[in-house]
Amino acid sequence: MAAVQINDIRPGAPMRWLKAGAGDMARAPMVSIGYGLIFVAIGAALSLGLWFVGAAAWIPVALSSFALIAPLFAVGIYQISKHIDEGKAVTFSDVWLVSGEKISQVAFLGLLLIILLLGWARIAQFLYAYFASQDYTTLSEFTSWLLGNPAGLAMAVIGTVIGGMLALAAFAISAISFPMLIDKQIDAATALIASVTAVRRNLFPMLTWAWLIAFWTVIGTAFFGVGLAIVFPWLGHASWRAYQDFCTDCGPSSAG
Results as ranks from 00 to 15, higher is better:
A2E: 14
A2V: 08
Q5G: 11
D8C: 04
G12K: 08
A20H: 10
G21P: 00
G21M: 00
A22Y: 08
A28R: 01
M30K: 08
V31D: 01
S32W: 00
G36P: 03
S47R: 02
L50V: 04
L50D: 03
F52G: 02
A55Y: 06
W58S: 09
V61F: 05
S64T: 02
F66S: 00
F66P: 00
A67P: 05
A67D: 05
I69Y: 09
A70G: 08
F73P: 05
A74T: 13
V75Y: 06
I80C: 03
F92R: 03
S93C: 00
D94C: 09
V95E: 01
E101R: 13
Q105F: 01
L111K: 04
L113H: 07
L113P: 02
L113T: 11
I115R: 03
I115A: 14
A121I: 09
I123T: 14
A124P: 01
A129S: 14
A132T: 05
Q134A: 15
D135W: 02
Y136N: 07
T137E: 10
S140N: 09
F142T: 06
W145P: 03
W145A: 12
L146S: 12
M155F: 01
T160H: 09
T160F: 14
G163H: 05
L168E: 03
L168S: 12
F171I: 07
A172S: 15
I173S: 03
I176E: 04
M180T: 03
D183N: 12
K184L: 09
T190F: 02
I193S: 09
A194G: 11
V196G: 08
A198S: 12
R201P: 07
W209R: 07
W209H: 10
A210I: 07
L212D: 08
I213E: 06
A214C: 07
F215N: 08
W216I: 09
T217W: 11
G220M: 10
T221D: 06
A222Y: 09
G225V: 15
V226H: 00
I230F: 15
I230C: 04
W234V: 14
L235A: 11
H237M: 15
D245G: 13
C247G: 12
C247H: 08
D249P: 04
S253N: 14
S254F: 08
A255F: 00
A255Q: 13
G256I: 13
